[in-house]
């Protein structure tokens, strides 16, 4: 639970800022462009410019930079691992030695690059989820994917599954907490023992959780049918996605920025 609380990635902070009010499709496109750009650029100057761009977005979104940065914490292990891997395992000019491990200049440079790239990636992606409600995000994804329907892409179904998953995550987390406690009250021990014993000790937790999830799924399906749900065909939406001048401006600006930075650095 503690880990989940720290996860800025995936959380939504309601607000009325310029960024919040953008069409979700715009935000998804901008995020995609930034991700592509991050993989094209290979200089620190380039990353600096991207960092400035993302920083600008954070200000526009009226988010506290400290809060956004906190989202990096759960990812710290991965970031450090990447750094270590690059610093010690790259060939090149040796500038230091740590036992059998050589630190090379190239390694240091590459490691620094990868870490910067990862950091910007995480911050950029969390900016999307921090400013877009899960529903808007799902609607946006459905809209972006819907041209794919012609080629058999189940855009509506994917979006519906995402909605239901989002709806039931808190419910199932709560349920898991309750089952864990109930089994602990019967003397269950989830913390000691070797891997096999621990995996086995999860059964009293997972079986009830699955049983309950399936029962919920069953009841939900009946409830959806009773409310006339019959797939995406003929379905309308209360909230229409609407591109405004603002959205076009933001997309063109990002695109221009990406082309310039991408070709120069």
């Amino acid at each position: 639970m503690a880990l989940l609380r720290d996860m800025t990635l995936g959380q939504y902070i309601p607000g009325e800022s310029f960024v919040h009010r953008l069409d979700p499709r715009t935000k998804i496109i901008v995020t995609m462009l930034l991700i592509i750009l991050l993989f094209l650029v290979e200089t620190f100057q380039g990353y600096g410019l991207i960092a400035l761009f993302i920083g600008g977005l954070i200000l526009l979104a009226r988010l506290s930079p400290r809060f956004v940065l906190r989202g990096i914490r759960p990812m710290l292990v991965i970031i450090l691992f990447t750094l270590v891997l690059h610093v010690f395992l790259s060939e090149g000019e040796i500038i230091g030695q740590l036992g059998p491990l050589k630190v090379t200049k190239e390694g240091l440079f590459k490691g620094g690059m990868m870490v910067t790239r990862l950091l910007l990636l995480i911050i950029g992606a969390s900016l999307l989820t921090l400013t877009t409600s899960p529903i808007a995000l799902t609607d946006g994804i459905e809209a972006i994917l819907s041209p794919g329907k012609r080629f058999g892409l189940p855009a509506h179904e994917l979006a519906m599954m995402m909605t239901i998953a989002l709806r039931f995550i808190p419910t199932l987390l709560e349920e898991m907490d309750k089952i864990t406690k109930a089994q602990m009250a019967r003397g269950a021990d989830f913390e000691t023992g070797n891997i096999v014993q621990r995996a086995k000790s999860l059964l009293p937790l997972l079986v009830p959780l699955f049983v309950s999830a399936f029962r919920r799924a069953d009841e939900l399906a009946v409830a959806m049918e009773a409310r006339c749900y019959r797939g995406g065909e003929g379905r309308t939406k209360m909230k229409q996605l609407l591109f405004t001048g603002r959205d076009y401006a933001v997309i063109s600006l990002t695109l221009t920025f990406a082309v310039i930075v991408g070709s120069l650095f």
């Binding site: 899960p134 909605t163 989002l166 709806r167 939900l220 409310r227 006339c228 209360m238």
Partner: peptide
């Protein structure tokens, strides 16, 4: 718990009419 489809109140109420 098992008949609410959406994550917010208004979205859930809209579910039927949308269908």
């Amino acid at each position: 718990d098992n008949q609410i489809v959406a994550t917010t109140v208004e979205e859930d109420v809209a579910f039927g009419p949308e269908n």
